[in-house]
């Protein structure tokens, strides 16, 4: 049901910017797919098309074999900013993600999720009275309350400090293991991608397209400071370096061939 296929997707904005050209990506049921790539290579555009917030210029997005048009109940999202509704308290914000649920179901799941994301006792607070990390926890709970088949994440942790980010990675993984949504996650952070993803799609800019797809063979739980983690990171960095072409070198000194192959 929640297999996500994106075929030959094109997007040209009204001003003529070609943001995506012939992008094809498949995410298996319950897979975590990270999308990495330099700035402006169409990552946000891709997520917005899948979310149904923008219309593609060509190509097909389908979920479980059903062709998508517009937004869909099984697809939910966490944005780069928490985007909580300031006039709703924490509980109501979480409940907002479960529009189709009955009132009892909604309040039951809200209470459980509040506890799960470590905000038990914060239910009656206003968003303005939470820290950035706490707000993003609420946003995650809001995205999961409806038990989505597909969860879209657009750099959800990029504004947070490394420790908060690390603990939110753990939280996200734990919730993913419980609910097993298919996750499509955009990030700039190689470490984040390697820690979380089953596969990494490296995109290249102007126009945005898929440069390379790399499968992670790292078992979970993963250790951020293990040598093998580093080796994988290096491989990804090299893929990004190549994807950026002559003008976007990111300062790698050791050639890819000199790395000990781990795969």
């Amino acid at each position: 049901m929640t297999l996500l296929t994106i075929e030959h997707l094109n997007k040209t904005y009204a001003d003529g910017t070609e943001a995506l050209r012939d992008v094809s990506v498949r995410a298996a049921d319950g897979e975590i797919l990270a999308i990495l790539g330099g700035s402006g290579c169409g990552k946000t555009t891709l997520l917005r098309l899948v979310a149904g917030l923008d219309e593609a210029s060509g190509g097909v997005i389908s979920v479980g074999g059903e062709r998508m048009t517009g937004t869909h109940r099984t697809i939910s999202a966490v944005f780069q900013e928490p985007r909580l509704l300031p006039w709703l308290n924490v509980e109501q914000n979480i409940g907002f993600g479960g529009q189709h649920l009955s009132a009892e179901e909604r309040s039951g799941r809200t209470a459980a999720l509040l506890d799960r994301v470590g905000l038990a006792g914060y239910g009656k607070r206003w968003p303005k009275d939470l820290s950035g990390g706490q707000q993003q926890r609420v946003a995650i709970a809001r995205a999961l309350i409806g038990h989505p088949g597909i969860l879209l994440l657009d750099e959800p942790f990029s504004a947070l400090d490394p420790f908060t980010r690390g603990s939110l990675h753990e939280l996200l993984l734990a919730l993913w293991q419980e609910m097993k949504p298919t996750v499509l996650m955009v990030t700039h952070d190689v470490d984040e991608a390697v820690f979380l993803a089953d596969r990494i799609v490296v995109m290249q800019p102007r126009p945005g397209r898929v440069h390379e797809t790399i499968t992670m063979n790292l078992p979970r739980p993963r250790d951020r400071i293990s040598p093998v983690f580093d080796t994988v990171k290096r491989r990804i960095m090299h893929a990004i370096d190549r994807s950026l072409g002559e003008h976007g070198r990111i300062g790698l000194r050791q050639a890819a061939g000199e790395l000990s192959p781990w795969w």
Partner: peptide, 16 residues
């Protein structure tokens, strides 16, 4: 607009 998009993602109708 960002908050309106939140409403759209979570399935609100135009009236909603």
């Amino acid at each position: 607009r960002k908050l309106v998009e939140v409403g759209r993602v979570f399935g609100l109708t135009s009236f909603g």
